[in-house]
Structure formats: C-alpha cells, structure tokens
Amino acid sequence: MDGPDEIIHQSTRLRIAATLNALPSGELMEFGKLKSILGATDGNMATHLAALEKAGYIAVEKDFVGKKPRTRVSFTRVGRRAFERHVAYLKDLLEGGG
C-alpha cells in the first residue's frame, strides 16, 4: 500500500482537492467560488493553492473579464491521480489494511 500524500493530506488542501476532483476533468473553478465553498480566507487559500500548484497538482489560470482580474484553478491529471491514491490509502487504513 502507498503511504499518505503529505501535500494533499493537510485539511484545507484535502478539501480543495476533493472539490476540484468533483468537477469534470479539465473544468476550471473560480478562486472566489472555491473560497466560498471552503469558507477559507484569501491568504489561507493562496498559501495552499501555491503548495498544490508547486507540486503540479493544480493549474492556476489568470485572465481578465473586462477590466476585472479573474483567477481560476483546475485539477491536473497528476493531481487527480495523487488524490485517488490518497483516498485509496485512507480507505485501506480504515478497512484495517494499515
């Protein structure tokens, strides 16, 4: 059995990953929407998104809608696979495999 994914396991990052994983593959979610779903602060979100991006688990896209800046994030294939492995690890642990 693989070990836990140390990047994903942190509580806020786990919830970010679970939220992005529930979207269809490649679909983007706006930063504000993600923040509101998780009830997190701007600073907290930015820190954890940066950690996930550095690991290659999420892609961050920044653009403008009119004059308004927009930040959107999506799960990468690597991130989705890491999340699936981590969930499998957690399930194994609960079922006594750990």
């Binding site: 070990g3 836990p4 140390e6 396991h9 509580s11 786990l14 919830r15 679970a18 939220t19 994983n21 529930a22 979207l23 929407k33 779903i37 998780l38 969930v87 690890y89 957690l90 399930k91 642990l93 609960l94 750990g98």
Partner: peptide, 26 residues
Amino acid sequence: MNVTREEAAKALDDIDKASDRVFQLQ
C-alpha cells in the same frame, strides 16, 4: 508521516462533504 484511523475517517468525511457541495452547486 503517520495517519491514524480517526484522521483517515475524518479526511474521508471531509472529502464526501466537499464533493456533495460541488454536486449541489452544479
């Protein structure tokens, strides 16, 4: 890194809640 069974259960519960919220919004 060690994860206890309690932490694993809580993590899976958090994952379910986050997924449910996304499906609800969709």
